[in-house]
Write a protein that binds this DNA or RNA. Sequence first.
RNA 1: GUGGCCGUAGCUCAGUUGGUUAGAGCGCCAGGUUGUGGCCCUGGAGGUCGGGGGUUCAAGUCCCCUCGGUCACCCCA
Length: 418
Amino acid sequence: MSELRHPIGTFDVLTPDSRRWETLVGVFARVVEGAGYGLVLTPTFEDLSVFQRVGASTDIVRKEMYDFEDKGGRRIALRPEMTASVVRAYIQHRPTTPWKAWYVGSNFRYESPQAGRYREFHQVGIEAFGAVDADLDVEVIALGWEFYRALGLRRIQLLVNSLGDATCRPPYRALLLEYLEGRRDDLCDEHRERFADNPLRILDCKRPTCHAVAAEAPKQVEHLCDGCATHFARTTGGLDSLGIPWTLATDLVRGLDYYTRTTFEYAGLALQSAQNAVGGGGRYDGLVEEMGGPATPGIGFALGVERILMACDAEGTLPSPPATVDVFVVDFAGGSAARDLTAQLRSAGIRADRAFDGRSPKAQFKSADRSGARLALVVGPDEEAAGTVVVRPMAGDRQQRPVERHRVVAEVSRLLAP
RNA sequence: GUGGCCGUAGCUCAGUUGGUUAGAGCGCCAGGUUGUGGCCCUGGAGGUCGGGGGUUCAAGUCCCCUCGGUCACCCCA
């Protein structure tokens, strides 16, 4: 066993597994680009303050951040999530709204790993800025739903909640605090001291004591202001209209502070592990302004690639067939034919591979077999002298025949054509 | 950060109450087939038994520490 290993909580993805990643990202791009979202690339690290603004009271920012001082004395953090970066980019560049962006990339959280939880993990996601319309909430939620469907996932549950806004959240918060104050003795040790920081978090606590308290707590959805109530009704009505089943989750709070109104989560019901959230998101109408930009509403989601792949495994979808080529050149006449033919074939857009180091014909055919190539091109001393190439189908009748060297590319193209 | 389980070949795993040169299957390489893959046969390469320390005449096996993996708590994608 080598001394050099990947760091704790990280992993390598080799072929054929990596092909699933390519497929997943490709499917995601197709789905969201088909709805007008454009790829946005942002740095993997940002000034620490970018993230501190989005979650000062959350574990993600308080204890799990990979932050450090760079050689210039700047406080830097590897991104623990992507929304903050995209918002920062929006503020910096001020694209015209509505601005609809999608992304894919790594995120970093300093946690101890377990099933579906890593220190470097990957997300695909979208963000849409500049519209308060509930139909945008519907669009965003539906695109995530559509993506899971496109991967072949069926056992996904959509959880939806509304957290209210600046009008109805403070009164609700006061109501909740008052209720919790009365039940203080029934809370778990951690939350008995901490519940005032973020009382909403109690609703998410899984300890039985808190759970019982939360179950009887007043619900935000039942205390929405008129604007939020209408927005929520239009959002859920839109989902109904599109035939997307959803479940009200009054205790759905999520890990970041910035959400307003709609929040949602996709749960992988086929997953047996403790972490079954395969994606989540929500509306963040106050975030752009909080981060120093013009008041701009926004909404988005982030989906966890590793967890989606776990769900695919659990549901038996999204296989990862090995990469293949079209043609394999077998050359035991010195190697110059293999060198030149593969180059010509590749120039013509034909996927071609070959063996190196002058291996035996038998070994080269073995490699040809493994390459998945439909055709083998064979050049031995006889063909080399005659200026021909033997074309051998690797399956079917395997009837091989010589072709003149200068006609090989055309002939291969013809044989490979559907 | 806390706890359970697990570390033997590239992979999946055997390895008896501690006892000689640590095994199997798969995979890989070569030969059988002086130029033809999959099947078959034969052979070969490949291991500091995760690492360190201890007990012992003797440790893959027992003890301690440590590193790593995995699962769970917590939190979340």
